[in-house]
């Protein structure tokens, strides 16, 4: 049960972007008010954050060349090049490593600042 405000970064995920597209269409068609769309997105932010926190067990590890890193406004950004991503919990899969040219990791603080 997190009580802080929720990040909006998951709106840029595929499911989030698709939801935003659908809400745009509903507003344009006059089927819902913009305020309801905002409320839906607020709920989306909360539910995604809570679900990822409480209901996921999968883990992945990655290895590659750390090309860029920065810490700004409490947000870490890492750009990893030539990265191999190993997915766990998929032991039945025959090849569970994915190799990609570039991975961008955006990591936000799940807790409040000044905690420690």
């Amino acid at each position: 049960m997190s009580t802080s405000g929720y990040y909006e970064l998951y709106r840029r995920s595929t499911v989030g972007a698709t939801l935003v597209d659908a809400l745009d269409t509903l507003i344009s068609d006059g089927r819902i008010e913009a305020s309801l769309a905002m409320k839906v997105l607020g709920t989306f932010d909360r539910v995604v954050a809570e679900t990822l926190k409480d209901k996921t067990q999968s883990k992945l590890t990655f290895k590659g060349h750390l090309d860029t890193y920065r810490f700004c406004d409490d947000v870490w950004t890492f750009i990893i090049k030539n990265c191999s991503v190993k997915l766990e919990q998929t032991e039945d899969a025959q090849g569970n490593t994915v190799v990609v040219d570039k991975v961008r990791i955006v990591a936000c603080n799940s807790k409040k600042t000044g905690e420690q």
Binding site: G5, Y6, Y7, E8, L9, D24, I27, S28, A34, A37, M38, V75, V106, C108
Partner: peptide, 13 residues
Amino acid sequence: CNGLPPLAGATAA
């Protein structure tokens, strides 16, 4: 141009 609400003031990340 599409008559949609403008961006919210603050974005968390």
